[in-house]
Amino acid sequence: MNPCSSDLPGTVGEAMPFLCDGALVTAQATLGGAALALVLAFAAGLAMLSPRRLVRVPARVYMEFFRGTSVIVQMFWIFFALPVLTGYRLAPLAAGILALGLNLGAYGAEVVRGGVLAVPRAQREAAIALNFSPYQRMRYVIMPQALAAMLPPLNNLLIELLKATSLVSAISVGDLIFESKALINSGSDRAVVMVLVMVIYLLYAGLITAVMRLLERRMARMLGREVRPLWPRRRRRSAGGELTVAAGGAR
């Protein structure tokens, strides 16, 4: 049955059509924010590694500024103050996505920088010995290995981003939180609505983690690391008493 149907019994039926609308907006804010954050994270993260001060310093300033101030203040600035200063007004959702992207991009920049630094120096030296250009060294040797190290912390950040989207309700974007408040204000059972909202957030977070895990596994396989099967076979005790895995381990 359609979970967004108003035919569902009681408060659930009353709330779900609205919460589904909100969930869609939350998904838009998350995906939009994530896309912007990733672009900014890679740009700023790589710039912070540049040997040139003129490239490094602005990236560092961006990172420290947006990491050190709160998302909601940034959002208010973009939505309320920017139109006054520039005369140009962004749509509420666009302003929200911009603030989220700028903020999470700043955290992501540190993840990108850390991931690149985690690749052993010897890999860079081997690439120099083969006369790769600086760009080729990054593109074909360093970055593929760095990505593997970045994925777990990026997963964390994406879930942070998902939860931070709740702040867009403060600039009147109709996300999950905005809709749930409206429902409660119009007399729906507070407890039921809040449980539904929580379940939807959890489902989203689970989805993000599932996608990131799949990426992690692909990366691990590319780097020739042992990948545990998705559905581990049951372990049996062999006659000798050691643990053996039925199949699917090393190939």
Partner: peptide
């Protein structure tokens, strides 16, 4: 050209790619 103590092969490429990547790209 240089051969290192710790080999330093690229773990993100198979053996063939390790050998062909630089001739192709460089």
């Amino acid at each position: 050209g240089m051969v290192f103590q710790q080999f330093n092969l690229f773990p993100n490429m198979n053996v063939l790619r390790n050998i062909t990547e630089a001739p192709v790209r460089v």
